[in-house]
Every structure is written in C-alpha cells, then in structure tokens.
C-alpha cells in the first residue's frame, strides 16, 4: 500500500515536473514571439525611411536623364509644364529661402524672448499655464493659417503698402513665423531649464542681474539645445506647405522681392498634384525632383540638429 502510494506520488511529481517544464516552455515561446513581433514593428519604421528615399530616387532618376545636372542647378527659370520647358530649380529654392527667412525673422527672436521669459523670469504658475497654451499655436491646422495669411494679413499689408500683390511671400512668411514660435520656444526653454541652478546662483551672487544671468550665463550654457531648436524651426519652415501654397502664390520667380508672388518647392508639388498628372510623365517626375531637393535640405538640417543634440548629451554626462 505504502509502496504503491510512494510510487504513485513519484509518478505524479514526475508528470507535474513535465507539465511545469512544458508550461515554462510555452511561456518562453510566447515571450519570444511577443519580442519578435515588437521588434518587427520597430523595424518597420526604418522601412518607411527606406521607402521615402527609394521612391524619391527612383521617380526622380528619369528626369536627370533628360535634364543635365548643370541646367538643373544653374538655369534661372522653372517652367516644366510650358511648351518651351525650362528646368532650373533656383527659382523654387529662392522662393523657399525667402519665405523661410521671413518666418525665422519672426520666430527666432519671439521664440527666444518667450523661452527666456518663461524659463527665467515667469513664476511657476505663469509657466504652467502659458507653455501648453503656446503649443496650441502649433496645433492649428496649416490650411487655417493659410486662410488667415491670405484673407486677413495680406489686406492689412496692402493698406500699409498698396503695391503688395494678392499673393506674396511676406504675409505667408510672417504667418508661418507665428506658427513656428512654439517649436523655438518650447525646446529652448527645456534646454535652459536643464541648466543647473548653481550656475545661476553663482552669477547672481557676483552681483549680476537676472537679465545678465539669463543672456550671459544660462543661454550660453544651453547653447546646444537652443541651436537644435533653431535647426528644427528652419526645417519646419522649409517644409511647410499649405500656408505658402495658399498665400504666397504659385509663380516660380528668381528674385528676392517679398512683395511679389513666388513659389516654394512645397507649393510647386501642391500645384502640380492639383492637376491631372499621368504617371511617368515629365511633370510627374518634376514633383519628385522638387521633393528630392526638399528632402536633401531637411535631411541635412536634421543631421546637423542631431549632431548638436548628441554633443549636448555628451556634455551633460
């Protein structure tokens, strides 16, 4: 009897062990499976970049078989859809640069003043309320900003200077500047708040004022963060589409006159996409050429931004 029970219990514990180990195995497999799925999800984001680079190159390549790189970079007219087509990217680049510069001349000073004010001067309560509110500026749909630039800002500018045309780079640039203030202010403020309190105290103890401390101690220490905020803002301004497509016009012009209509790289893509465009035609290829140019600009800016940021991280360590 006892022998039997002993045998039985041994048998039982053996199957128990087996069951346990098989359950453990299932659990292990499940864990591995989950990790694999998650890894594939993470990897798919790399595929997106790959797809972007691939399509831009593949669709733009045939264009460069027809148009020489020299013509593309030096010709000062961009009329790919005309009878006598000219393929110089310069007018689109100057249009983009002009609206970007106007936007930055608003966004950088305003954003910087805001960030210094919020980080160094304002009380905690003011900061807690205003920081998220300020981010609403970046949340407004860009098509709404386009409406505002064309139907509110331009008429006001025309009252001041009647020679300004209905579509002009100035109003688009100004409105875009307001729109990207949060990109500058939010990141710069984070950078300045990360500056150790001891630096401020040291400066104040030497008799420096708050203003002097902010601009001669805090801002230089947060330089990397502020610089990467600027880079982000530039990249946003270059890539912004709807505001310029609506308010700046669709006429590529090799000039730097902000009161005239112009066209940016992004606006050109919109203009062409609005029409009916057969797949593979030269017009279709030109939007990829414009896109590739845009990508080269923003990608290099992103790289610069990342360089600056990684230097910052090393410094903090």
């Amino acid at each position: 009897m006892s022998l039997y029970s002993l045998q039985n219990s041994q048998k039982n514990s053996l199957t128990d062990k087996k069951r346990m180990s098989s359950r453990k195995n299932i659990r292990k497999i499940k864990e591995l499976l989950i990790e694999g799925i998650l890894f594939l999800c993470a990897l798919s984001s790399v595929c997106v970049t790959f797809a972007i680079v691939y399509t831009l190159l593949v669709e733009a390549m045939p264009f460069f078989k027809v148009v020489s790189l020299k013509e593309f970079l030096t010709e000062t007219e961009w009329t790919p859809l005309f009878e006598n087509a000219k393929y110089g990217i310069l007018p689109l680049v100057t249009g983009t640069l002009m609206t970007t510069v106007i936007a930055l001349s608003i966004a950088i000073p305003f954003g910087l003043i805001t960030s210094v004010y919020l980080s160094e001067f304002a009380s905690v309560r003011v900061r807690e309320i205003f920081k998220p509110l300020l981010e609403l500026l970046a949340a407004v749909p860009t098509v709404v900003y386009g409406y505002f630039a064309m139907l509110f800002v331009t008429p006001i500018l025309q009252i001041i200077r009647p020679e300004i045309s209905t579509f002009n780079a100035l109003s688009a640039g100004l409105v875009m500047g307001i729109m990207i203030i949060p990109y500058v202010s939010s990141l710069s403020e984070d950078a300045m708040r990360a500056v150790p309190q001891s630096l401020r105290e040291g400066s104040l103890a030497l008799g420096a004022s708050k203003f002097q401390t902010s601009f001669q101690v805090v801002a230089p220490s947060a330089f990397s963060g502020i610089a990467s905020a600027f880079v982000l803002a530039i990249s946003r301004a270059i890539g912004e589409t709807m505001v310029v497509a609506i308010a700046a016009g669709l006429q590529p012009r090799f000039s730097f006159n902000p009161t005239e209509s112009t066209a940016t790289l992004t606006a050109y893509i919109v203009q062409v996409s609005l029409g009916d465009l057969p797949h593979g035609s030269i017009g279709y290829q030109t939007i990829y050429v414009a896109g590739l140019t845009l990508f080269v600009f923003t990608f290099s800016l992103n790289l610069i931004g990342q360089r600056i940021r990684s230097r910052l991280e090393k410094k903090v360590k």
């Binding site: 984001s45 970049t49 992004t266 893509i269 990829y288 990342q306």
Partner: peptide, 16 residues
C-alpha cells in the same frame, strides 16, 4: 531613424 522621420516634411510622405 525615428528622430529623422519626425523631421521629414509632410508633403514628402505624400509623394512617397
């Protein structure tokens, strides 16, 4: 790559 994706203008996603 994700940092970079966040910096690509939306219209480029469109033409892709």
């Amino acid at each position: 790559n994700i940092l970079n994706l966040a910096g690509i203008p939306s219209i480029i996603y469109g033409i892709m």
